[in-house]
Amino acid sequence: MFFDSLFGYEAKRKRLLKKAPEGALRDFLSVPFPDKKQFFVDTPILSVDFETTGLHAINDKLLSVGFVDLHANQIPLKSSYHEIIRSKGRLKADNVTIHQITDSQKDQGESLQLVVEQLLKALTGKVMLVHFARIEREFLQQACLELYGMAPTFPMIDTLMVAKKRLDHRDVAYDPSTLRLSALRNKYQLPEHYAHNALNDAIATAELLMAQVSNMREPMQVRLADLLL
C-alpha cells in the first residue's frame, strides 16, 4: 500500500500532473486511473495498436494508430478509431507491404499532434491494452516528449505478458512464437484476422483479452491487478 502510494502509477500521475503543460496531456493526467483492486469487468479499457516503420521509438516513425474500447466484456465498435499519421520521408517498400499504407495515404494523414491528442482523450481514466507493450509505450512516450516535453506513465495490460505468465507458471519450455497475437488467438479459437492494421489489431487484442480472462478460474473475480504489467 505504502509502496503503491509512492511509486504506483497513481502517485506518478499526480506528480506529473503538477509539471504538465496546459492542454491534452494535462487533461489526460487530471483524471485518476482505475483502481487496481477493481474487477476486470468493471474496468474501462482502451485497446490500442500502433503501426510503425520500425522498432526504435527515436529513429522510427509512427505510421498509424487504432484503438477501441473494451468495457463490461464488450467491444463497442462505435468507439473504434483509426488514423494514419502524416510524416516526412518516404516509406520503405518492405514496410508498405506489411502495413498496406502507401506514401500517398500517409501524405493525406493527420498530424501526429492531433492523433496523440485524440488518443490521450480516449485513454483518459482508462487502462491501456496492447499486445507486446514495448512498442506502444515507447512510441507514445517519445511522441509526448516531442509534443509536450515530458513522457507520461500509464497503467497497461499486455496480452502477451498475460499469456507468458500462464506459461511461465507451468514451468515448461515453450516456443516464443506461440506468444504472437495470431498464435494466441488461434489457441482460443478466435477467428483469423487481417493483421497489421492498427484498428484491426486493437480489436483482435481486445477479443483475445476477453478470451484469456474468460478462461481464468473465476472470470468474474479477476481484478485489474491480476492483469496489469
Binding site: N73, L77, K78, S80, S214
Partner: peptide, 8 residues
Amino acid sequence: VKEINICY
C-alpha cells in the same frame, strides 16, 4: 457494423 458490440 458501427453498432456492433463484440462479446465473448
